[in-house]
């Protein structure tokens, strides 16, 4: 199965940023562990709230250019649920897959997407939790 990498060039919503080289290594490792072929990553533009590359990859996934998208992290997903839904619907309709390399999460079925949405909510709410013990 061929997976197209997707890396980021701006700070992720959780405030972290990693070198693109490191992001690619994480993706490559996650793909290798699952026996997927890794296709060189596309980089999301650094412009704030820009998801042009994300939508481009969805378009290419729809055109069967590869079997799945290998994200560096779930934190790269767009904040708007309707934009995430576009990916989910395509995965279900075209039997594709998305891999979130850092978290080692694979989504393929509806139940995976529901779990992921809960996980995203939890991550979002954690910003209100105390940081010091």
């Amino acid at each position: 199965m061929i997976f197209k990498g997707y890396i980021s060039s701006r700070k992720l919503p959780d405030g972290t940023i990693n070198h693109q080289k490191v992001q690619n290594l994480v993706i490559r490792d996650a793909c290798e562990k699952r026996g997927y072929e890794f296709k060189l990553s596309s980089t999301e533009y650094g412009i704030k709230n820009c998801f042009l590359t994300y939508f481009q990859l969805i378009k290419e996934l729809k055109a069967n250019k590869y079997d799945g998208i290998a994200f560096y992290s779930i934190a790269q997903l767009p904040p708007q649920k309707k934009d995430r839904k576009k990916l989910y619907e395509l995965i279900l309709k075209k039997k594709k897959t998305a891999l979130f390399s850092l978290e080692n999460i694979l989504i393929k079925h509806k139940r995976d997407m529901n779990k992921l949405e809960i996980f995203l909510k939890l991550k979002d709410f954690l910003k209100y939790s105390p940081k010091k013990i």
Binding site: S9, G46, I47
Partner: peptide, 8 residues
């Protein structure tokens, strides 16, 4: 199409 500044 891209500008290098858009990706770091």
């Amino acid at each position: 199409i891209h500008s290098d500044t858009w990706s770091g």
